[in-house]
Amino acid sequence: MSNLQLKAPLTINWAINNSCNFACSHCYSREDTHDEISRDVLYSCIEKVVKAGVFSVNFGGGEPLLHPDLLDIAAFSSGLGLRVSMNSNGWLLDYDKAVALKNAGFTKVGISIDSHLPEVHDKFRGVAGSHARALAALKHLKAVGITTSISTVICRINCSTIDELVAMALEHEVGQLNFHNFKCSGLGMSNKDELDLTPEEWKVFYRDAIAAKRTVKNLDISLDDPIIALLDARDAGSLVKGSVCGKLSLNIKSNGDMTPCGFIPIVIGNIVRDDLQQVWKDSVVLDKMRNKQPTGKCSGCSKYEDCLGGCTARALALTGDMNSPDPHCWGSDAPAK
């Protein structure tokens, strides 16, 4: 299944705006374009996406709740059959907004929370009171029947607090707790020395997170990092090996530029002018991501077939080569015999 080539992405991660009311230490899009597609043009782009066969869109940014037309765009998308979700910091999400999101067709909303400790989260996000508002947002979403999740970017401020993060998620009855691996993009690159973990620390984190995933009931703990294949923990039901970016999902920026994922700054087309299926099929960049070649310690590694070199975005950001071993990999530096 590693070479599965779909006719179109299953999911689009769509940064419809890059404006934000927060100042997060790991923000990947702070320096992105602030050009935005007009609503009418955006609608025609959404129609293109539907026609191509895409199942779902996840709106992000920036903070999508700052987009003045978010509700209309979501209603238009869900009306065409797309499954609509969003990632938000929760600051602007009160009960009335939750009702409006429900009416616009949102089925799932993820709220970013980076620590169980309010003071740690607030400092990291740059806004006092943001932790309390994020938790309140979860409560409002649950009240109106929207499935909730917590998204936590794992870094030095939270890597040893798995139990506490799980307890917070259980207490607020979210369906899913997403532990996202740390990417070295945008401010994540600028602050990587302060925030990123060493390979050995990643190993410890994932060992403990996988143990929690296997034992905690009533909560789906999601680990999206391909390198957990080193711990024999990759989802056997996944359609593809390695990263899903460019294989199952695609990223669209606020100006319509398409990139393999939100953390790889290589533009492969623009949804306004280009045919999505054509780009998906013919992109040289996507082809390279789908057919990675082992280099360095990946060569001969017994886990390569499942891991495929780990996170392509991270390898590219830190080495300049998609095929380089994931810098988070704790495997032996010597190629396996």
């Binding site: 599965l4 299953l10 359609l239």
Partner: peptide, 14 residues
């Protein structure tokens, strides 16, 4: 050959 994809939340099937 993969003829179709089913998709339900995080669950997928070819």
């Amino acid at each position: 050959a993969v003829a179709a994809i089913l998709f339900s939340g995080g669950s997928m099937l070819s």
